[in-house]
Design a protein around this nucleic acid. Structure first.
Length: 290
DNA sequence: TTCCAGGGTAAGC
DNA sequence: GCTTACCATGGA
């Protein structure tokens, strides 16, 4: 039956599931009393933090026993202690690292990630989550288990969004982002932009292609490069990261321009700049709220 | 009420 | 080239 559930424990140290799922890189996980419920590539998934790792459950309607997709999504193969050694040893970076040790970068589905960040502009994270949730309710069929009353909606594929049209996206409260998302869905559905092929090109080339989409600039492209394609050198600069750079690294030198911050981040944070960015973002956004 | 939110675009200098 | 108004919506 589709209600059968497979369970597996993944031993992993330094993995902060809560920080990872609430740090604004993904918008669709639901917190419940019994862990986080979500969907990965069509599978119903529940994940719980334990002292020594992650406890995972998934629906077994397809290929039970193969968990490579889980490992890939949560990036369990990353050598965490080696990774953080590559971060700069300056004081603010170490403070951010101490604050959210175990925060990880996920490897998400490119279309869902792209769509989520097209919807993100001048929106707070809870509002982005609401729009994504409405789109799922409107355009997807729920994944659910009979004994569980929390339905999970997959994110609608490009062809579904393309056919739905802009007006439905506006009804989901996408606002002025609705035409951007609809156009992106149409171009992908028609094969004008191949998100799969971007896995095989350089970071710069993938960024160039993403930015041909209307409504996708440097920041949104960098989010997709980092959270979906695994380009760890990508360094998305939003209002919070700009604030962090200004306060921690450009103290007393006037307001740095975007280009200046971009150049600095590349030379200062190195090949793991994307992790540095995520730590600074989560640190300044959640630690400092009054 | 006003300001701000994981921005981008196009019009105006 | 660089700055600025505007886009839609809800929370603080």
């Amino acid at each position: 039956m589709a209600d059968d559930v497979a369970t597996r424990f993944f031993p992993v140290r330094d993995y902060d599931l809560e920080a990872t799922l609430t740090s604004g890189q993904t918008f669709r996980w639901i917190r419940t009393q019994a862990g986080w419920i979500g969907e990965i590539e069509g599978r119903w998934v529940r994940v719980q933090q334990t002292p020594d790792g992650l406890l995972a459950e998934c629906s077994t309607s397809e290929r039970a026993g193969e968990w490579g997709w889980f490992d890939h999504y949560f990036q369990l193969g990353i050598n965490y202690s080696d990774m953080i050694k590559l971060l700069p040893r300056d004081e603010p970076m170490q403070a951010a690292l101490d604050y959210c040790r175990g925060l990880r970068l996920l490897r998400q589905n490119p279309w869902e990630c792209l769509a989520g960040f097209i919807l993100s502009s001048t929106k707070q994270i809870p509002q982005i989550q609401q729009i994504v949730q409405r789109m799922g309710q409107r355009l997807s069929t729920p994944l659910t288990l009979s004994w569980l009353d929390t339905p999970v909606y997959s994110f609608p594929k490009p062809e579904i969004v393309a056919e739905a049209g802009e007006s439905i996206l506006r009804e989901c409260k996408a606002g002025f982002r609705a035409p951007y998302l609809w156009e992106a869905a149409c171009r992908i559905q028609q094969g004008e932009l191949d998100l799969e092929s971007l896995k095989n090109v350089s970071c710069d080339e993938a960024r160039r292609q993403l930015m041909t989409l209307n409504g996708v600039g440097r920041k949104i492209a960098d989010c997709v490069l980092l959270f979906a394609y695994g380009f760890q050198e990508a360094f998305p600069i939003d209002v919070w990261v700009a604030r962090a750079l200004h306060e921690y690294y450009f103290k007393g030198t006037g307001t740095p321009g975007l280009q200046e911050m971009q150049t600095f981040s590349q030379s200062h944070f190195g090949e793991m700049a994307g992790y540095a960015q995520q730590y600074l973002f989560h640190y300044i956004r959640t630690n400092r709220k009054t």
